[in-house]
């Protein structure tokens, strides 16, 4: 396996259900790199969940090839394949008559791990997803929805699979908890560096979580597959523009880093709000607005007027913006 071998490769994959007039998934090709967080997003019925479920072959593709980690798994033993791919669904699907420990330890047990290793791993995973060891002795229905989905994530991670497939995992959770779980999951991903394929219909969730986002249009057309910043800056077509919705320019500000902008210092300004190159423009603005100042001190550049910061962040560019307004 070379550095460039994609972790997941879909090559001309199609799904055509018998009796259906149109295919659920048109020939689709997609490469997902090791450690990449890819979000599949689109309206209902666009084939994003079907695509996800073809990766672990819960849905058998009608045509094309699926490669995992450099191996063609299109015709391998599906149960064996799935034991090495984490799978999380919106409804969680914990097994109700098994305790949390038993649920999390099920795949390790099937893989033949001994008891102490499984118990150790289970304890470690519960801690990783923010649960207490005593939660392990409870049954799923004794936990809240948010706690259950933490267990769902822990269970998917149990055998340390390199790939995680997640089908709207936070879709059924209240907005406040969802936001917290998303933040926690991003922090978790920084530690575990899994290759993640994540399905959602919520473009904001996609923009928040994904390294790259695949926007599906009706009829399973892959409208654009790009980074969040690229999507907001250069939407491929009208569908992508309308799917992203209002406020693309504002949303870009939380993805743009100050260090990426071409800024010109204005030495005449007094600025005592410090901003680093790793901060996003949104964070810089937040600080400036919070303090009521019109300039910020950008590390390595010097004092910059908030207005200049905004113009440098604008799309498609300062000149056009000026002409337009």
């Amino acid at each position: 396996m070379s550095e460039n071998t994609p972790m997941v490769r879909l090559h001309e994959v199609t799904k055509h259900y018998p009796g259906a007039a149109v295919p659920a998934v048109l020939p689709l090709s997609m490469d997902i790199a090791l450690g990449e967080f890819v979000v599949l997003v689109g309206p209902s019925g666009c084939g994003k969940t079907t695509t996800l479920r073809m990766i672990n072959r819960l849905v058998e593709p009608t045509g094309g090839e699926i490669w995992i980690d450099g191996k063609d798994v299109t015709h391998s033993d599906p149960d064996e394949l799935r034991r090495h791919i984490g799978y999380v669904i919106q409804q969680v699907g914990l097994i109700p008559h098994m305790t949390i420990n038993q649920n999390v330890g099920l795949v390790p047990k099937m893989l033949g791990w001994n008891k102490s290793r499984t118990a150790e791993r289970t304890r470690e995973l519960l801690e990783l997803v923010g649960l207490q060891p005593e939660h392990g002795e409870r049954y799923p229905k004794q936990l809240s929805g948010g706690q259950q989905q933490r267990v769902g994530v822990a269970r998917a991670l149990a055998a340390d699979p390199p790939i995680m497939l997640m089908d709207e995992p936070f879709g059924a959770i209240d907005p406040v908890t969802r936001d917290r779980l998303q933040d926690e999951f991003l922090r978790l991903q920084e530690r575990i560096k899994k290759t993640i394929v994540f399905v959602t219909h919520d473009i904001n969730e996609a923009l928040k979580l994904g390294d790259r986002i695949a926007i599906f249009a009706e009829g399973s057309r892959l409208a654009q597959f790009a980074t969040p910043l690229e999507l907001l800056t250069n939407p491929a077509d009208d569908f992508v523009t309308s799917f992203i919705g209002e406020g693309a320019a504002i949303r870009r500000l939380s993805l743009l880093h100050v260090g990426d902008l071409r800024l010109v210092a204005n030495p005449g300004l007094a600025a005592n709000v410090e901003v680093g190159p790793g901060d996003t423009v949104a964070q810089a603005l937040e600080r400036a607005l919070g303090r009521g100042v019109s300039a910020v001190q950008v590390t390595g550049v010097g004092p910059v007027a908030v207005q200049d910061l905004l113009l440098a962040s604008s799309t498609p560019g300062p000149a056009a913006l000026g002409a337009g307004s």
Partner: peptide, 15 residues
């Protein structure tokens, strides 16, 4: 039996 429980179990690699 809830179909999602079975789906999750299949997704984990249970035969």
């Amino acid at each position: 039996v809830d179909e999602f429980i079975i789906d999750a179990a299949r997704g984990m690699g249970l035969s």
